[in-house]
């Protein structure tokens, strides 16, 4: 029930990218997306450059392109918003296939679409190459408040347990003939969530007592003393340097 603490987007491989320290990868992914967001939207060719850069990282990380693309459908909700922009945007308008499309709207939609897509692809690359536990260690080494990483650690430890409990409640409801179709039939599900909250809260109290009895001092013990070398940072930040150069090119040609 609580088994399997690997998150669904992780791709277990052994590659230079997988072996990089997590904090290097978090910083690199964040800076890379900042470069993408800062690029002027009219610099069309530069965005193709970012895609080539990501392809290079995937080759180094031995991630199949199809694997990433299948998971990038997470992005779909933003695409819906982007489709609306050309139809509702201001003048001037252009005619295309009998549709009257707004030119600023089209540019805005392109902007959201291309930057959102590159952002999702970057996040997917980070998640695919870094196990959950390492991401938290990375946050810790980047000096995130200890309370945040501790809460996040405990949350990830127990989320499978709580989600499993929710799944069993749902099965129990269905087994008893529950088949809600409208919002006003949501009462039983909501009462289930209420029970889930009470159980989670009480479990928290028990977990706290169990932690105290095992010598909890208020901070997570540091189990690995891995030092990050200058070479790791250089390797991780190399793609960021390329991205920064691309962004600078974008500013010059746009």
């Amino acid at each position: 029930m609580g088994a399997g603490h690997a998150h669904p987007l992780h791709l277990h491989r052994d590659s230079p990218v997988h072996r990089l320290p997590p904090q290097v990868k978090i910083v690199a992914a964040f800076l890379g997306v900042v470069c993408v967001v800062a690029t002027p939207r009219e610099a069309f060719a530069v965005f193709a450059g970012y895609l080539v850069l990501l392809l290079g990282v995937w080759v180094a990380a031995r991630i199949p392109v199809g694997w990433i693309l299948r998971r990038s459908v997470i992005e779909l909700p933003f695409v819906v918003l982007a489709v609306l922009l050309p139809l509702t945007g201001p003048d001037p308008r252009i005619e295309w296939l009998g549709l009257s499309l707004s030119e600023p709207g089209l540019l805005g939609a392109w902007n959201i679409l291309v930057k959102g897509t590159l952002g999702v692809l970057t996040s997917l690359t980070l998640a695919a190459t870094t196990p959950m536990r390492d991401l938290l260690v990375g946050l810790q080494r980047l000096h995130a408040p200890a309370l945040v990483t501790t809460i996040a650690t405990l949350m990830l430890r127990y989320v499978d347990v709580i989600a499993g409990e929710a799944r069993r409640m749902r099965l129990a409801r269905i087994a008893r003939g529950h088949d809600p179709r409208f919002l006003w039939q949501a009462g039983a599900t909501a009462r289930g969530i209420g029970a889930l909250f009470v159980r989670s809260y009480e479990r928290g109290e028990r977990v706290h007592l169990a932690m105290l009895s095992r010598g909890w001092t208020g901070a997570m013990p540091v189990l690995t003393e891995n030092r990050t070398t200058r070479r790791d940072w250089a390797a991780g930040l190399a793609p960021v340097a390329v991205a920064a150069a691309l962004a600078a090119t974008g500013w010059m040609i746009a």
Binding site: T150, L154, S200
Partner: peptide, 27 residues
């Protein structure tokens, strides 16, 4: 107080799990 980490951790796990539960709106 000193229960912050486990209590907030479990409530966060609860929020995470709740966001996975689907409610009917219309058929």
């Amino acid at each position: 107080d000193e229960r912050t980490a486990p209590m907030a951790g479990l409530v966060t796990a609860f929020v995470f799990a709740v966001q996975m539960i689907n409610f009917p709106i219309l058929p």
